[in-house]
Structure formats: structure tokens, C-alpha cells
Design a protein around this nucleic acid. Structure first.
Lengths: 348, 348
DNA sequence: GCATAAAATAGAAACGTTTCCAGAAACGAT
DNA sequence: ATCGTTTCTGGAAACGTTTCTATTTTATGC
């Protein structure tokens, strides 16, 4: 008689309790509840009844320990408070939940060490899959770290060579190129470009679009106005201030990533420069509500919700044996007020 | 000889492997690694060495199954893509991670049924604690559902009577009252008020501040201009349109919650009404970047980051045996351009 | 009715830990 | 030396499942 007789009603009910109540073996309980085919109708009913009466809920840890599947997906982002990532996370979680998976969320704070600690933690938790927006693509031990996870991986906006993972990539260069072409056609030559680290695809692909627009126009791109470093607001702000106090100051600005854009806007404000008037301005990635704020900001738009859904879909596919694949998400240049200005009434 | 000899190098290394390598019992491994005091220096070194050499990482599920502690915190929000909740989640996760906990994130999508499914899921996963912003406070079975979790709970901006949980409450009424008093003092009487469901503390406390401002001014508050229902943008937009096309249309608007505000702003835009000119406008809760957008929006501000940190702290405290407590977070009325306008050049 | 196959069930061995218990070694005091 | 303590260690029993194997029951074909 291993377990006390209902003394504490709060003691969780286990598979043994159900077996005792139904008068059958615990293996039969397991079989019924997991939908095993070799089960008689009589048994099914008897077990179901006992389980319902006791309000039995299988213990997750015991199940996972035995079966190996944890029904848990790791999700690593630089910073979930970034609304762009927030939308991705939300859509992703919805899809995963529908499929019976739960999401373990971790912020990397943009720090390589934190990220690697997080991955280690997720490995110990035996996650069934990982969705991540990595801090950097060229960490030496990255591939082995991810492979040791022994679980499918979906990367968001990252290209890691030699890794057998799926990827959701945005076609940044197209949108940025369109925007830059437009600015050039309006007469701009001194166009500033601020984005994050070149250690990630995002920045490299945006830069590609920027350069290619200048190439098409047959003019050299302004190397002194390209500032690549970090994605955070501080960097965006200080670089904006630096660039727009240069002797030969830019007439237009493209700022990349939601953090950079926030910083750039603050910087401009402090300099007393108004987008759409004192300079032309295009934000790469939209802040929520970009469409309704008083000031109309142009942008290079991409659909975060779709990226989240696609990431979930790709991961679930791999979990059920599918092969990794790369999904390309388009970006679109959206022209609003702020694309004008900056050219001292040259045309009007 | 229960386990194969290093045939597959990818086979995870268990406590048995370490024991074998160090030539000691598995119980000793466990004792060393969990920092048990009754362990000799010689043993400690020997075990540590073997564990390091093999790169041993304890299996999380086995640990949890045996010890009962999961080092996992559930986190339920209406919608993580809401930047306000995003900031809370981010700060919360940071604090919890520092303490060795991981965060299981679930969106309730503002739906009672989904929320309850999520809680059930978290119960099966035996979480050590829950932080939640509930859909509603008056669900009949809510208390028992949460108590069955058998884990400490911290509620965000919710008051559930008879539940032994901590709560992080924002002092909404103060900020809203200040804002309303200011609007009244500027000459407004027809002030519209849009916020979410009265089934949660948030709305009720805001309404309290709104009413109390009118009481102080000695005038009746405009019951026909108070619209309480949902927190989402659709509601905010349609109600704004309805209220501002009334015969006796309001001259000012307070919109509550980040979603409502988004909707309200869209609605105003579609009506061609400009905040700060055609009406006075105060947002309750700030969107990120409120300080830099071209249009300057007044707001009732509260510190989301602090709420996140406090929530984590309160939960960790309860996990280590502390008692539940209620933390009040102040709100502040921040006056910007949009507080002006709406009064047909009455004063100038 | 009987042999044979198929279906259903029970029992027990995992899964990888922690923790309890008992025994061995070390230590000081007599 | 001997005896009690204390300190340390090994063995084994949990934790709550799933799954393998063996056994019993039922169905099938003659």
C-alpha cells in the first residue's frame, strides 16, 4: 500500500490512482490515454471514466523523461520588448500552441555570452526545437553549440554557413534599394545609412541594397556616411548626431532596425531637424502605429506576423521529419511624407 | 553493462557515466554537484574532474521529476506584441534568469477559455510560479484554478478577491485624475473616455480617477461619453468614430490602454481630426517613442520596466517562502502639445 | 472442437535524477 | 586498544510515466 488513502486531497492524482480505481494495470491506462490501437472498447470506457472521475492529468516531466519529447520550443531574441520581435513572438507562440507546444522565452540582451548560456540552458531542458534571432553569425563554436542541441533550428534573419537549419530571411536589399533609388531620383547624393552589426545577414543585405542603388545610378556611394555598428538606440542617436553635424552634412537618412530608428529620431529631434523638411528620412522596419502618428514616416516594411507564422510552420515541419528550408519574405518601400525635404527648395 | 561504450558519441552523458569514470557511486556525484556539505575535498575534486572531462550536464527532467522543483515560471499575457507588455516581459525574464529560472510564455489572446487552457497546461508542467495579466477578474472558477496550480502567483494590474497572491498595481486613478483635472481647467466639459473592460482593475481604477476629477470640479461627468468595453484597437477606433460624430461632440479625449489608443488615433485620423488642434487628447499608457514622434502626445505614464522587475522580485520572494504583497506603481500625467486644442479659440 | 493466429492485458524494466538509510572510515577521548 | 561520535560513502528506493516482453484471452479457419 504505497500511497496514503486520500488524506490530503491536494496530493496530485497519478496514473497509479487511476489504475487502482479502474482495477487494471497502469500500462493499460497509459495505452488508453495515449490512443494506442490495441485497446478494447470496454477497457477504453472503464479507464476514461476512472480518469475523468479523479481528474487525472499526466505529469509532464515524467512523460518527457520517459518519452524524450518535451513539447517545448526555445525562443531566443535579442530583446522581446522590441515591438518587431514582439509580433514575431506572439504569432509564433499562437501557432506552436495550436500544435501542442509551449514556448520557453529567453532574451539574449544582444550579448554573445548570454546567448550561449541560454542555449546551454535550453539543451538541458531538452527542447524539441529552437527559434532564434542570433546575436552574431560568426561565433566559432556556434555550429557545434547548435548541433549539440540535437533539435531542429529555425533562424530568423540569419545565415549560418554549414548549419542544417531552416531560415526565415527578409529580402532587405530589395526594399532598401527601392528606397535609395527613390531618394537618389529626388536629387539626393549625400544619403546617410545607419544600421547594426555587419556580423548578421540583416545589415549586410540592407547594405547590399543601398550600394546597388548607387551603382544603378552610376554614382559612388558615400562611404563616409555609412555607419554600421550596433542595433541599439544609443548607437543610432550618437551616429545621427555625428553625421548631421558634419561639414558636408547628409541630405537624407536611412536608418535600419527599430532600435536604430528610435535613436535616429531622437538624435534628429535634438538637432532640431525635421524629417520631411530638413532632411528626407526613411525608416527600415516600422514602429507600430507608423501609419497614424502625426508625422508621416516613410519605411521599408516587412511583415513580422508572417515571419512568426512561417518560423513556427518551418519548425513544426522539421520536428515531424521534414527537411530544412529557407523562406524569403519580401520587403516593401512605403513612401510617405518624410521622403521629401532636405534639398533646400531645389525643386518646388 | 547497461550502456554502450561510446559507440555513438552523441549519446548524452548521464550521471552514471560520471560515476563510472570517477569510480564512485552516483549518489556521490549528485552530492558533489548539488553542493551537499557532507563531501570530502578529495571526492569533490575527483568528481568535478570527471564531470568536466565528460562535459556532464544534468538532465532537467530527471531532476525536476525527482526534486519537484522545475525552475520554470509561467507568464501569461493578453498579447506579447503589445509593447507595454513586451517591456514587462523583458525585464521580468531578465530578473528570473538571473535567479536561475526560465520563462514559459503564453498569450491568452484576450480569451477566457484560452487563458484557462494555458493555466491547465502550466499546471501539468508543474511551474514554480505564475505571473499573469488575466483577461478578467470575475471568472467563477478562477480562484480554484489558480489555487490548484499549487504555486505562488503574481498578478499584473488585477485584483482578485480572496486569492492569496501578490499583485503589482498601477495607481491609474491618480494620473487619470490629474489629466482630467487639467483638461477641465482648460475649459473642457465634454471629455470622452475610452478604456477596456470593467471586469479588470485597470479600467475601474482609471474610471475612478476620471469621475473624481469631475467631482472635484463640481460638475457632473458626461456619462454619454464614457465608453468601456474592450482593450483592442478595433474597439478604440469604432468608439472614437462614434463619439466624435455625435451631435454634441466631445472636445477632448482620454483613451486608455495602448490598444485603445492606437485605435483612437486611427479613428481621429480618419475623421480628419488633429489632436492638439481639433481636440485635446491624452493617451493612457505610452507607445514607445511617444517622446520623439512629430506630433507630441500627452500621456498618463507608468514605468513598465519597473513593473516587470517588481513582479519578478515579488514572485521570487514568495517562492522562497515570503508572503504575498501588493506593490503600487505610480502613474504620472505628462503634458505635451496634444493637451491643447479643441476649444474653438475660446482662449488664445 | 482444436490448433493457430491475432488482440488485449499485465508486469516489469527503463528514463536520469535526488534522497534516504545504513554502513565504513576517520577521529578524538578514555 | 576501545569506544563513541562524527564525517563520509555506497546502495537502493523513489519520482510518474512509457514501452518492451510475456502472458492470457478472444477470434479464425478447418
Amino acid at each position: 500500500m504505497p500511497r496514503s488513502k486520500g488524506k490530503k486531497s491536494s496530493a496530485p492524482v497519478t496514473i497509479h490512482d487511476v489504475a487502482e480505481r479502474a482495477g487494471v494495470a497502469i500500462s493499460s491506462i497509459s495505452r488508453v490515454l495515449s490512443g494506442h490501437p490495441d485497446v478494447s472498447e470496454r477497457m477504453r470506457i472503464k479507464v476514461q471514466k476512472a480518469a475523468d472521475e479523479l481528474g487525472y492529468e499526466p505529469d509532464f516531466f515524467a512523460q518527457s523523461l520517459r518519452s524524450g519529447a518535451t513539447k517545448t520550443i526555445g525562443f531566443i531574441m535579442r530583446d522581446i520588448s522590441n515591438p518587431f520581435f514582439g509580433v514575431i513572438a506572439q504569432c509564433c507562440e499562437q501557432e506552436l500552441r495550436k500544435a501542442g507546444y509551449s514556448m520557453l522565452l529567453m532574451n539574449s540582451d544582444g550579448d554573445v555570452a548570454t546567448e550561449s548560456t541560454n542555449i546551454a540552458q535550453l539543451r538541458r531542458r531538452k527542447i524539441d526545437g529552437l527559434i532564434a534571432s542570433l546575436v552574431s553569425e560568426d561565433i566559432p563554436e556556434l555550429n557545434s553549440t547548435l548541433e549539440k542541441l540535437n533539435a531542429p533550428v529555425v533562424l530568423l534573419d540569419r545565415e549560418v554557413v554549414g548549419l542544417n537549419s531552416s531560415a526565415i530571411l527578409a529580402n532587405h536589399h530589395q526594399g532598401v534599394e527601392d528606397a535609395t533609388v527613390d531618394l537618389i531620383s529626388r536629387g539626393h547624393k549625400r544619403i546617410a545609412f545607419i544600421s547594426g552589426s555587419t556580423r548578421v545577414y540583416t545589415t549586410r543585405d540592407r547594405l547590399k541594397g543601398f550600394k546597388s542603388a548607387f551603382k544603378k545610378a552610376g554614382i559612388a556611394y558615400p562611404t563616409d556616411l555609412v555607419s554600421l555598428g550596433k542595433f541599439d538606440a544609443e548607437f543610432g542617436e550618437s551616429e545621427t548626431k555625428r553625421l548631421f553635424t558634419l561639414k558636408d552634412r547628409p541630405t537624407a537618412l536611412l536608418s535600419g532596425g527599430i532600435g536604430s530608428t528610435a535613436g535616429a529620431m531622437r538624435g534628429l529631434k535634438k538637432l532640431g531637424l525635421v524629417p520631411g523638411k530638413d532632411l528626407a528620412f526613411v525608416a527600415i522596419d516600422e514602429w507600430p502605429m507608423f501609419d497614424v502618428y502625426g508625422q508621416q514616416f516613410s519605411s521599408v516594411y516587412r511583415d513580422a506576423a508572417m515571419m512568426g507564422r512561417e518560423a513556427a510552420a518551418a519548425l513544426l515541419e522539421m520536428i515531424s521529419g521534414g527537411s530544412p528550408r529557407t523562406i524569403m519574405v519580401e520587403t516593401h518601400y512605403i513612401v510617405r511624407e518624410s521622403s521629401t525635404g532636405g534639398l533646400k527648395a531645389k525643386k518646388k
